[in-house]
């Protein structure tokens, strides 16, 4: 049986929880053999392959809930603080390069400081840096520009969609029951 080119790299990275981005060569291989990989991962591992125009990733019930929760908290606070500064955070996530200095300023002055201090990954500048460059970097959620600078890959959209859906549920469920900490 013949496997698509770069099969091993595709399997290794996806099983490692990585987002394979559209700019990578093996993304094209996945896209070209979409049907094969959907079946392959479903039959071999019972994982769903999510593939769109920007990235491919595996979804499964074997989820790294702690990491996902920490990343969600990270994006939630980042969006909230950027908005407080009057910035369009969606544009910033999509187009801007961030420096650790900027991130630390936003997080250290956040009104969610209690929550941040109780979070082992985000509580100070060192842990945050490790979290961004290592935990998020390993999964291709950010791209490192230098030791102090990075930008987000389209993988951030998974978390923005999550917030959007959550808002949909909240607004449908309990009108007049919000508190935003403004």
């Amino acid at each position: 049986m013949e496997y698509p080119e770069m099969h091993r790299q595709i399997v290794d990275e996806l099983l490692d929880g990585k987002f394979v981005l559209s700019r990578e060569r093996h993304f094209d291989e996945i896209k070209e053999n979409e049907g094969f990989y959907i079946d392959f991962f479903k039959i071999s591992f019972n994982h769903e392959l999510e593939i769109n125009n920007e990235f491919a990733r595996l979804i499964s019930d074997e989820t790294d809930e702690n990491l996902s929760r920490d990343i969600s908290i990270f994006f939630a606070i980042l969006c909230y603080e950027l908005d407080r500064q009057g910035k369009n955070f969606l544009d910033a996530l999509q187009y801007s390069e961030f420096s650790m200095e900027e991130i630390n300023y936003l997080f250290d002055n956040s009104s969610w400081i209690d929550l941040l201090q109780s979070n082992k990954q985000l509580r100070d500048s060192d842990t945050r840096k490790r979290f961004i460059f290592s935990s998020m970097g390993k999964r291709n959620i950010i791209d490192k520009v230098s030791d102090e600078r990075f930008y987000f890959t389209p993988a951030y959209k998974v978390f923005i969609d999550f917030a959007n859906e959550l808002a949909g549920h909240t607004l449908n469920k309990s009108p007049g029951d919000s508190d935003n900490g403004n």
Binding site: I73, Y80, L90, W112, I160, T170, L171, G181
Partner: peptide
Amino acid sequence: ILTGWITFLQSHNKIQPP
């Protein structure tokens, strides 16, 4: 989106993340 994030931040331990 911010409404969603605030809902999440307010009870992040009870809500299943992505």
